[in-house]
Amino acid sequence: MNNLIQNYKIILKELTNTCKYITTSKQIRLPKMSDLELVALNLTAEYMSINSELQLFRCISGTDLDGRIERSVYNKRKRKLFPYIEKIRETLSSKFSDFTDVFIVDSTPIEICKISRANRSAICSTDEIKPAYGYCAAQKSRYFGYKLHAVCDKNGIFHSFDFSPANVHDVNYLHDIKENFENCLLIGDRGYISKELQLDLFNYSKINLSVPMRKNQHNFVDFCKTKSKIRKRIETNISQLCGQFLININLAKTFQGLATRIVSKITSFTMIQYLNFFVFKRSLNKLKINLC
């Protein structure tokens, strides 16, 4: 993972092969670095755990990329390319869409600052979607920020994600899921218990929502061990996003910047999975392995 330029060239080559048809907004003056090259550099940095733009530009100093784009311009263009990066992620994940009809849904906290600083923090304070106080049952802790909702298949490929303030309950994300999925099994944790939504998902999109029962529920039945094992896949994915891709470290000041950072990390995650499976013919979820 130590050769940024070689990794960049591998990622750019595959992006060119799979996503060159995706269009972006026209620019009057053609930049030295194209949008696709900028995204390839961004994904490479995320894969290599380079979470700071200052560190990234130190790494490319003296290489072929040195002088092709300024740091401030890179930051501004990257934020504007949020829809473009999301289309690339959708294109990559669609390559795996026919492999399974079993999906897992879960959420993870996105802390923007410590609770002690929340009252005086200006991060995302002027945005339409404002941060809020929330509680993470898995970590048994309160936090201030947002919640990332995500759906991946049983192989670990992310197919959908969204953001909400931290105080929004997980079950509300199921309203979005029924528009994007159909004829599938969806496995969740106890945060998604809702008989009404379970029935609505099945009637609307033939989605079979399967969640473990609470022990105090009437006619309690143990959750299927096979489904419990499958559900651990998304927990591993989130752990990898926190560990290698540093998704739990926020350096953004606006929600647009935060959303762009997160979509870049998830797209980079999917890009490495794509390369592992289709190019290098190796284990899908070995994300720390060298590309070159």
Results as ranks from 00 to 15, higher is better:
Asn7Gly: 13
Tyr8His: 06
Lys9His: 14
Thr16Asp: 08
Asn17Trp: 03
Lys20Asn: 15
Thr24Glu: 05
Ser25Thr: 13
Ile28Tyr: 08
Leu30Asp: 10
Pro31Arg: 13
Met33Ser: 14
Ser61Trp: 00
Asp64Gly: 06
Arg68Pro: 01
Tyr74Lys: 15
Lys76Glu: 13
Lys76Leu: 14
Lys76Cys: 11
Arg79Gly: 10
Phe82Ala: 11
Tyr84Arg: 09
Glu86Val: 07
Ile88Trp: 07
Ser94Ile: 01
Ser94Trp: 00
Lys95Glu: 04
Phe96Thr: 01
Asp98Val: 05
Phe99Met: 08
Thr100Arg: 04
Val102Asn: 03
Val102Thr: 13
Ile104Pro: 00
Thr108Met: 04
Ile110Thr: 05
Ile112Lys: 01
Ser121Gly: 04
Ile123Glu: 02
Ala132Val: 07
Lys147His: 10
His149Asp: 04
Ile157Ala: 00
His159Ala: 08
Phe163Ala: 06
Ile177Asn: 04
Phe181Asn: 06
Leu197Phe: 09
Leu197Pro: 02
Lys206Asn: 15
Ser210Asn: 12
Val211Glu: 00
Met213Lys: 12
Met213Val: 07
Met213Tyr: 03
Lys215Gln: 06
Phe223Leu: 12
Phe223Ile: 11
Cys224Ile: 14
Lys227Ala: 14
Ile230Asp: 06
Ile230Leu: 12
Lys232Gln: 14
Phe245Arg: 03
Phe245Gln: 02
Ile247Glu: 01
Asn248Arg: 03
Asn250Gly: 08
Leu251Thr: 13
Phe255Glu: 00
Phe269His: 05
Ile272Val: 11
Gln273Lys: 02
Phe278Glu: 00
Phe278Cys: 01
Asn285Ala: 07
